[in-house]
Design a protein around this nucleic acid. Structure first.
Length: 648
RNA sequence: GCUGCUGUAGCUCAGAGGUAGAGCACUCCCUUGGUAAGGGAGAGGUCGAGAGUUCGAUUCUCUCCAGCAGCACCA
């Protein structure tokens, strides 16, 4: 056989006979490398060490030191080992698929009785046994028919179905972990003992549809996490605990922000603290939008079905709309109304009132529009997914030629808003024309170019998602990253060539003829509810002063200071600060603890010393100590600090 | 909507076929205390809703509602 040349990551080249395996090369380099090797990359493709190399290639050996590869393999092999363990304990369980996911893996099984938490312990134990056997992982290429016959003989219908989906003529890779075998793309570790027995944990059991389709049978999914070592696992479990602590549903209760109750699932009862936060955010958005040339409007929430039929929503989304009938006692005519699931049809009604000229464009109509959507019972989640919500919605009516400038203007607004609210980074997803769409190719060309040009003009990175646009136009989605690295899709910007026409929106152009405007749907926060959920979790409830619903508590150390406490509160309130007095019969330790737990950013403690010197002792949330300043200085300092970013 | 789990005081949770308990919070009293829980007393619950089994159900069974985890969905 001819010789081939392998280029190692350090640039060195080595010559081997064609057909050499990664393991051969590792052994040739050093004995210890052969021992620690877990996989290799051949021309950048992550491969098994047993893979034969037949041509000149860039080549790298991976060990446990290569995080990306090591974690992928550990998790992937852990999934296989888990499946093997399950089948060893319950031979009648059918296997399906088990991929690697963030931090871990899962495997879907078909089994009559669901797994219980106790089962997970038994499976973990069996997995450790398999790991401790240190059995070699081997692989073979099979042709389709052999694989189908094999799986039919072994009563694995899901595997038969999977093999059936692989194109004719393509060989399949089969892997063995000891006697247990699975169809898999690979690559895998060298032996089962390379999965760290003390660094994985089975987390939970849940149902999942076969091939992700709700028409299919529901399988039993087991989720697990796996890491390189015990410490990483512990760190991950700790991180989960931390994330739980900042859960907005928990903080919402603790900080007395809102609640949701049985009689109105998916609808929020905002408490004084939460509504203060909501209002601060809304006032801020209102100022930002007005500064950007938006005109605020307000439209009905209950609207006759005729409008939804005209807009097309009745056909497409009726199942998700709250529909009301007016009973005959109260109406001469029986009619069917729907709670608005979105604002756009109503905004077109406002636009349509009165003849519009090209001189009126772009016309930016904004509404903090209260919408209702009947979300399925299983999808609701605190404030993040609700049935009643308010969008920071606006529709920009403009000409095709104005799309680019409006896109740019909007992205600039969104960037400012996100930054002001503590989110420094976000990603843009650009979705282009789908196969089934309305509008001519020329219009799509123009709109896609306009959107893309706007992102480029701002020098922002973005990702293109071909074919993912709405049927009525291309769109941009904005995903931000919060303080603990989670991503949230909130803002959106969508061009629409369909709705204005459907609802008869027109303007008189320079040519004196009637034209149909383009409508740009856009939201920055998305919905206030969801955004506040994200905001609460991002700050873990410890809001910057301008956002904090309770900004300052003035606490008396002795009751002789009560009058002065009230005076300080008055002085703070006079400057628009949200200040409360705490003159309860409690010790200062108690008060400090309670308000710290309540995440009040500033506690001003006053005793007789402060009364006499007209000072206050200021303690900031999270600080250990306090410092004394004059009342006058504190009021000015806090008043400045509490200004919203757009007013500074 | 689907699979599984859960529903007891405002919150976190314990409990049992004979009609309920703890801690914190709340109210009152004592205490005037200098930066993360001072002491005492008291009040508070149709045990998610409905039906069934039973002499008796909050406990067992069924149905429904809601929540949680995941899946599906998300204009």
């Amino acid at each position: 056989m001819a010789d081939i040349s392998l280029t190692l990551p350090d640039g060195n080249q080595r010559i081997y006979a064609a057909g050499v395996t990664g393991m051969d090369v590792a052994a040739d380099i050093s004995k210890s490398l052969a021992k620690s090797a877990i996989s290799c990359s051949i021309n950048g493709k992550h491969s098994d060490l047993s893979q034969a190399i037949t041509e000149n290639s860039d080549f790298a050996i991976h060990t446990m030191k290569d995080d990306a590869q090591a974690l992928e393999l550990i998790r992937h092999d852990a999934a296989h080992i888990m499946a093997r363990a399950v089948q060893e304990i319950w031979p009648d369980v059918r296997v399906t698929i088990g991929p690697v996911i963030e931090n871990g893996f899962y495997y879907d099984f078909d089994r009559d009785a669901p797994f219980t938490p106790e089962d997970l312990g038994a499976i973990e134990k069996k997995m450790r046994e398999i790991i401790n056997k240190r059995e070699p992982v081997t692989t073979e290429l099979w042709d389709r028919n052999r694989a189908i016959k094999y799986y039919e003989a072994n009563n694995e219908p899901y595997k038969v179905e999977l093999v059936g989906m692989i194109p004719e003529g393509e060989n399949l890779r089969m892997y063995w972990h000891g006697h247990w075998q699975d169809l898999c793309r690979g690559p895998h570790l060298v032996h089962t003992g390379q999965v760290p027995a003390d660094a994985f944990k089975l987390q939970s059991v849940a149902g999942a549809y076969w091939r992700g389709d709700s028409k299919n049978k529901m399988l039993q999914r087991i989720y697990g996490v796996a890491f390189k070592n015990k410490l990483d696992l512990k760190a991950h479990l700790h991180m989960l605990e931390e994330a739980e602590k900042r859960d907005h549903r928990k903080l919402g209760r603790e900080m007395d922000l809102f609640h949701i109750q049985e009689e109105a699932p998916g609808m929020v009862f905002w408490h004084p603290n939460g509504w203060t936060l909501y209002r601060i955010l809304q006032d801020y958005m209102r100022r930002r939008q007005i500064a950007d040339g938006y005109l605020e409007i307000n439209t009905p929430e209950v609207v006759d079905r005729k409008l939804w039929e005209a807009s097309g929503h009745w056909d497409k989304y009726r199942e998700n709309m709250f529909i009301t009938e007016i009973d005959e006692e109260h109406a001469n005519e029986k009619r069917t109304n729907a709670l608005k699931p979105m604002n756009c049809p109503c905004h077109v009604q406002v636009y349509n009132h009165g003849l519009k000229s090209y001189r009126d464009l772009p016309l930016r109509l904004a509404e903090f529009g209260s919408c209702h959507r009947y979300e399925s019972s299983g999808s609701m989640h605190g404030l993040m997914r609700v049935r009643g919500f308010t969008q920071d919605d606006a529709h920009i009516f403009c000409t095709e030629g104005q799309i680019a400038a409006e896109t740019k203007k909007f992205i600039e607004l969104l960037t400012r808003v996100y930054r002001d609210l503590g989110f420094d980074s976000f990603e843009i997803k650009f979705s282009t024309r789908p196969d089934v769409r309305a509008g001519t190719d020329e219009v799509w060309d123009q709109a896609e170019e306009a959107l893309e040009a706007a992102i480029k003009a701002l020098g922002l990175p973005y990702e293109t998602d071909p074919g993912e646009g709405a049927f009525y136009g291309p769109k941009l989605d904005f995903k931000l990253t919060d303080a603990i690295g989670r991503e949230w899709q909130l803002g959106t910007f969508q061009a629409d060539f369909v709705l204005p026409e459907r609802l008869g929106a027109e303007y008189v152009g320079e040519d004196g003829m009637k034209h149909t405007p383009v409508m740009l749907h856009r939201a920055t926060l998305g919905s206030f509810e969801r955004f506040l959920g994200v905001l609460i979790e991002n700050y873990a409830g410890r809001f910057p002063l301008w956002l904090a619903p309770r900004q300052i508590v003035v606490a008396a150390i002795v009751s002789d200071a009560d009058d002065y406490v009230l005076e300080v509160v008055e002085a703070l309130r006079a400057r628009g600060l949200r200040a409360e007095a705490d003159i309860r019969n409690e010790k200062i330790n108690y008060k400090v603890r309670e308000h710290s737990v309540g995440k009040v950013p500033v506690i001003l403690a006053v005793g007789m010393r402060e009364v006499e010197e007209r000072t206050v002792s200021i303690r900031r949330l999270g600080d250990k100590g306090s410092k004394v300043e004059s009342l006058e200085a504190i009021v000015t300092e806090l008043a400045n600090e509490a200004l919203p970013p757009d007013l500074r």
